[in-house]
Structure formats: structure tokens, C-alpha cells
């Protein structure tokens, strides 16, 4: 199926048809005005060619004509804006209960990990008819996760999480491209998205995998690095307790608060001094030696501490969507986010 000549991309996600409908509307507007302008230019160029007999008396004045051709485009572009914004809102708003997958982009490959720990490289298997949300981060330069058949893409930026969701509607194999220029082998940072029927996918997912789920790996790392010495489960530690903080606002030293989303948790490990929680001293050293994946695991573990009792359960596939702030720079996390509204 890949590789055959076509002039229209396959549409295989819930948003694809909505994007296509809007696109066709704008194609219609474009074709109409292009033909109109070309016909007028050529037509009048011929009718009023030099020395032709066409009458030239009383050319029109401009006021009312100007008003018409200022208003018509204004109305049209406002329709395009509103319609496009509505589709965009849907593309950006992750449905509750989306299946979570971690993505790390690096020169020049895609590394993916499912919630049960199963890893893939340059290939992503997903079930049909189920929303999937990718939490993505780059190891080096900016990449971009792009699946044309789903009509979605999102930059994958170093140092901060971004997210992308889709719900595939057609089983099949689709192109995965890196769309943001990332260096010499940019064009080879490509792969496949394999959309499978739910049962086949479940079978595939439960196949052999020696990797721990990210949250479990994170817990081991947490213990190995003795994070718990300061971050005790209860109150009284030198650092704040991490139980139940994920997705909640945290008061900051010096006033204000920040949403403890994945980006804030990650920042607090990489650059602990950036935003100190109110009531604590800036004692924590930075951990620049942690790899992107280890950071992902720690973040997953801390997120899994959502409520006391299910701390070891790993990240649930069906639980309420955990806010992942992709939208705002780290110091603007107070700003309302789409994801926040879904809760």
C-alpha cells in the first residue's frame, strides 16, 4: 500500500476527514478566485486591448466597489479562521482515557515505549478506534512527529514535553516522517505506524518484552538514587512529598503557583533551583547525568504516585488523562491549558 502513486493522501484518523473537508472548502475558494481573476485579466486584456472598439467612457468610481471587495474577502477569511480554529481545537484536545506512549526523538531515529514497557524503534503499533496520546521529547535537536494519513504533526523539542494525540480509524501501515529539519540524515528519520485491530494489537503488545513499564523503572531509579531520603512519602522531609502532586498546583517560594505537570517535574530534577516549592530550601543538587529516558521514567513514577495506594500500579492505560503541558514555556505554566480543561 505504501509506495503506490496517488494524488490524495489516505485518511485514517478521526480528524483526517474534518481537515480534508476544510481543505476542500479552501480549494474551492482558491479555484473560484483564481479563475475569476485570470478570466478578468485575460478577458479585459483582450476586450480593452489597445485600439479596440470597446467603449471607454465613464469608467466606474471606486468607493462602493472597494467596499465590496474589502468585505467579501474579510468575511471569507473569518470563516476560514473560525473553522480552522475549531478543527485545531479538536486536534489539540486530548480525549480522556487515551492510551499513553512515550516518544523520544534523536538524530536520526524514533524511540517509542508503551506503558507496559514494550519498546519500538521507528515503528509504532497502535490499536484502531482508540485514542492514543504520545508524550514526546527530543534528545538533541528539534524533530517533528508527522503522520500524514492522520493529518497531525507536532514538534518534538529538547528539554520539554510536547504531546500529540490521534485515533486511527483504518487498520493499515502508514508513513511516519520527521518533519522538522534535524541534520544530515533528516530524510531517514522515518518509520511506520501500524494500525491493528484491537485483538491483534493486544496480542502484539503482550508479546515478549524484557523492559519494565516506565513507572516501575522509575521507581527503581528513585530508590537507587536515594531520592526518598529527602522526598519522604509523608510530611517532614527536607524536600516536599511527591505523593499526589502530579497534575495539581504547587505553591512556589516567593508567591504564585505552578501546575505540577510533566514539564515541571522534569525541570525540578534537571534544574531544581529554577522554581522552589514554598516552605523548602533550595538544597537539591541538579542531576544532569540522567538520560532523557531515565528522566522520562522518573517523571512516570512520580505521576504514578497520583493517589496513595496505587503507587506501584504503573501508569494506567485507562485512567484520567494526566495533564501534559506542551503549550506554554516553562515559566508560564499557570496559564490555562487545553489539557487542564479536560479534567
Amino acid at each position: 500500500m505504501l509506495g503506490e502513486f496517488r494524488l490524495w493522501p489516505r485518511a485514517a484518523s478521526t480528524v483526517a476527514e474534518k481537515v480534508d473537508t476544510l481543505y476542500l472548502f479552501e480549494v474551492a475558494v482558491t479555484v473560484f478566485f483564481t479563475i475569476l481573476i485570470c478570466a478578468l485579466v485575460i478577458g479585459m486584456g483582450v476586450i480593452y486591448r489597445k485600439g479596440s472598439r470597446a467603449a471607454r467612457a465613464n469608467p466606474p468610481t471606486s468607493k462602493w466597489l472597494e467596499a465590496i471587495w474589502a468585505t467579501v474577502p474579510l468575511v471569507l477569511v473569518m470563516v476560514m479562521f473560525a473553522w480552522g480554529a475549531a478543527v485545531f481545537y479538536e486536534i489539540k484536545t486530548v480525549p480522556d482515557g487515551a492510551m499513553k506512549i512515550d516518544v523520544v526523538g534523536k538524530q536520526w531515529m524514533w524511540k517509542l515505549q508503551h506503558a507496559n514497557g514494550k519498546r519500538e524503534i521507528n515503528e509504532l503499533h497502535v490499536p484502531v478506534g482508540r485514542p492514543v496520546v504520545l508524550r514526546m521529547i527530543s534528545d538533541d535537536v528539534i524533530h517533528d512527529f508527522y503522520v500524514p494519513a492522520f493529518r497531525v504533526k507536532q514538534d518534538v523539542v529538547p528539554g520539554r514535553y510536547s504531546q500529540l494525540w490521534f485515533e486511527a480509524t483504518e487498520p493499515g501501515t502508514y508513513h511516519l516522517f520527521c518533519a522538522e529539519y534535524c541534520g544530515t540524515e533528516h530524510a531517514q528519520m522515518i518509520g511506520k505506524v501500524v494500525v491493528m485491530e484491537e485483538r491483534a494489537f493486544a496480542e502484539w503488545l503482550s508479546g515478549t518484552s524484557s523492559d519494565d513499564p516506565p513507572a516501575v523503572a522509575g521507581e527503581k531509579l528513585f530508590e537507587r538514587m536515594r531520592c526518598g531520603t529527602c522526598h519522604k512519602q509523608g510530611p517532614g522531609g527536607r524536600g516536599p512529598s511527591l505523593v499526589g502532586i502530579a497534575g495539581k498546583p504547587v505553591p512556589l517560594k516567593g508567591g504564585g503557583s505552578v501546575l505540577a505537570d510533566a514539564n515541571y517535574i522534569r525541570e525540578s530534577i534537571v534544574r531544581p533551583q529554577a522554581r522552589i516549592v514554598a516552605g523548602y530550601q533550595p538544597l537539591m543538587p541538579a542531576y544532569p547525568q540522567l538520560t532523557t529516558e531515565e528522566l522520562n521514567q522518573l517523571v512516570a513514577y512520580i505521576e504514578s504516585l497520583g493517589a496513595p495506594g496505587d503507587g506501584d500500579a504503573g501508569r494506567s492505560d485507562t485512567g484520567p488523562s494526566t495533564p501534559v503541558e506542551d503549550a506554554t514555556p516553562p515559566d508560564e505554566n499557570e496559564a490555562p491549558s487545553t489539557e487542564g480543561e479536560n479534567e
Binding site: T30, A85, F88, K153
Partner: peptide, 26 residues
């Protein structure tokens, strides 16, 4: 005039959020 008309109108596709997500960087 003809080419600028096409160039300008296709600029609207890119200004349209829902379409740009797909065609950005293509």
C-alpha cells in the same frame, strides 16, 4: 497577478490552523 493570487490564497490555507498542522513543513 495570476501567480500572486494563487500564492496569496494558498497562504490562507497555511494561516488556517486546522490545515497548517497537516501541511506545515511540507
Amino acid at each position: 497577478i495570476g501567480l500572486f493570487t494563487i500564492g496569496g490564497l494558498t497562504g490562507l490555507f497555511l494561516a488556517t490552523l486546522g490545515i497548517d498542522v497537516h501541511v506545515h513543513d511540507t
